[in-house]
């Protein structure tokens, strides 16, 4: 009565420098009741465990060689081996291995220092390893300093419209 797991391989998306988060959430939205999602990723997508856990999915992860991982997310009500590892956060400094942002903030229309305050509030609310994306009116030198002092990682760049987009990973 349960359908086979829906399979999604995000390795080609990530290899092309793309953002797989949208594809994953799309796939989750199309799942039939009781159906699971089998995800193939070039890293262990620990933060996704948290995101999908909030939607009632339990992960089972196993390494399949070459650093690639297969993770199966099943609805928590289903029979499941509870041996899934949901432990150590990804320690990579390489932003391409970061999870999709758990929070997206648009702080462009705020007066200084509010863009920085809101961004840090968002970061403080994350769990270790989660990421947050924020749009800021300009390159935030003072924010960089605070992030460094608090041990968070970030990458950022100017958008074509002139504002600055920063992706922060909580340390």
């Amino acid at each position: 009565m349960t359908q086979p797991d829906y399979e999604l391989d995000v390795r080609p998306i990530i290899a092309k420098g793309g953002e797989p988060f949208g594809a994953i959430m799309e796939a989750v939205a199309t799942l039939a009741p009781g159906q699971g999602l089998r995800l193939l990723a070039p890293f262990k997508p620990v933060p996704l465990f948290h995101v999908l856990g909030q939607r009632g999915f339990e992960p089972t992860a196993r390494e399949i060689g070459n650093g690639d991982w297969e993770v199966t997310f099943r609805p928590a009500t289903g029979e499941q081996n509870s041996g899934a590892e949901v432990s150590a956060p990804v320690q990579s400094v390489d932003p391409s291995t970061w999870p999709e942002p758990a929070v997206e903030l648009d702080n462009r229309g705020l007066e200084p220092p509010e863009p920085m305050v809101r961004t840090l509030e968002g970061v403080e609310a994350l769990t270790s390893g989660q990421t947050l994306a924020a749009l800021l009116p300009r390159e935030p030198l003072f924010l960089f300093e605070e992030l460094e002092a608090r041990g968070h990682l970030w990458r950022g760049s100017f958008e074509p419209e002139g504002h600055y987009r920063i992706l922060i990973r909580r340390g």
């Binding site: 200084p112 220092p113 920085m116 305050v117 809101r118 840090l120 968002g122 003072f142 605070e146």
Partner: peptide, 17 residues
């Protein structure tokens, strides 16, 4: 502005300022 940053920067986002 600079006084605010110097004083409250370390607690920004953690505590109400």
């Amino acid at each position: 502005f600079l006084t605010w940053l110097e004083c409250y920067g370390p607690v920004m986002g953690k505590k109400p300022t």
